[in-house]
Simulated scan of single mutants.
Amino acid sequence: MTCGPGFYARRLSRPGAVLAPMAGYSDAPLRQLAAEEGALWTVSEMISARGLVLGGDSEKLTLGRPYPGEANRVVQLFGAEPDILAEAVRRAQAWFTPAALDLNMGCPVPKVRGRGGACLLQTPEVAYDLVRAMRGATELDVSAKIRLGWDTNRSVEVAQGLAAAGASLITVHGRTSAQRYTGEADWDAVARVAASVDVPVVGSGDVRSAAQARARLRSGVAAVMIGRGAVGNPWVFRALATGEDAAPDAGERARTALRHARLHVAFYGADRFGLLSVRPLRKVLPQYLPDHPDLREALVQVNTVEDVERALAPLLAGSGADEDRMKVYEISGPPGGARGML
């Protein structure tokens, strides 16, 4: 359900953290697990504005499609043309019922260059026009996610321009685009941005635990965004929402890994070969069980949910896995195609 204006302010009135947009990771199953554990909101993988406007059958695009009952999900767009982004906002709102819209100004991937992402940090006046165009196309909150700059720190200047253009919230990743993911995130720079604008600032970069997130909150940000630290660890959101840091045991970790696999096939259905495949989760499942490297070899070779269940069998015995299986049906329903394979 669309949440209307003021979404960010409402969600920031409570404790917690935000799930970052991550290409290839922050899809519907991961967002669902993070939301259930108390994430303030989740952000979709970035979606090309031109793809939405010119791509034909984009209404069924899995990057934007919500899981049944999904709420508090922000759709992130990237692009560099105001008219295209405005139309993409209208389509995203109609098709994907987001709670808010976010402009990607942080993706450093070379293939995005010239089409938006971190390139906008070189020409921030273009980004300000984009935010104004997005604001003109919707009543929902519009935000932007930036890095410190392209190769030098211009974050205060850029954040102030975005706020003046109408951004309701700004997320700052504490690296330049040139740094990609090397070195350490500069949280002193993030703090300077938070102190320089009147809109909420969310900080991002190198947060892998609840303790680190709480320490980063002391920089003056309104909330912390967690990306890689949440993959295989949705419980970090529970800790920050409730203040309880009790770590899940191996059985709960294994059950959640298996449930992630079941949510995956429930959302995506059969692939082009008719298989309910979990191959995209090979990079994710081992991260649920960092203390069990003996299971890694099996988990990076899985093809089906049954493979996952066999790999995790030593930890699943008597752990309530059948109850988790039914929970997937109740929330997501069975996938299309071979419905008896879950």
Results as ranks from 00 to 15, higher is better:
I226M: 08
V221W: 04
L217W: 09
F237D: 06
D245R: 01
D206Q: 07
V201I: 07
R216T: 12
W235G: 03
G227I: 07
Y268A: 03
D206F: 00
R218P: 02
P200E: 13
A254Y: 08
L263I: 00
F237R: 06
D249Q: 06
R218N: 13
D206W: 02
T256S: 12
R208P: 06
A270L: 12
A215H: 15
F267P: 01
T242K: 00
L258M: 04
V201S: 00
A222N: 07
R218M: 11
R253A: 09
H260E: 05
V201A: 00
A210S: 13
D245K: 00
A254F: 01
G251H: 15
G269E: 10
R218V: 06
V236I: 15
T242H: 02
G203Q: 14
V199Q: 12
A210Q: 13
P234G: 03
A213Y: 09
R255N: 14
A211S: 14
A213P: 03
A191K: 11
G205M: 02
L217A: 01
G232W: 15
D245I: 00
M225Q: 15
Y268C: 01
A261M: 05
G205R: 04
Q212E: 12
A257C: 11
A210T: 06
W235N: 09
A230S: 14
R259P: 05
A246R: 12
P234D: 05
A250K: 05
A239E: 15
V199H: 07
G220I: 03
R218K: 15
D271L: 06
V236T: 13
V224M: 01
G232T: 11
L240T: 05
G229A: 09
V236D: 13
R216D: 07
V265W: 14
A241P: 11
V231Q: 13
V202K: 00
R228P: 03
R238L: 02
L263P: 01
W235M: 10
A223H: 11
E244S: 14
R255P: 05
M225R: 13
G220A: 07
R216F: 08
Q212Y: 09
A194V: 10
A247T: 12
S204F: 02
V231W: 05
H264L: 02
A191N: 09
D206Y: 03
D206G: 01
A211G: 08
S219M: 08
A230E: 11
W235P: 05
Y268K: 10
M225S: 14
D198R: 15
A257G: 11
R262L: 13
R208Q: 03
A215F: 01
A223F: 09
T256E: 13
A247L: 14
N233H: 15
V236E: 15
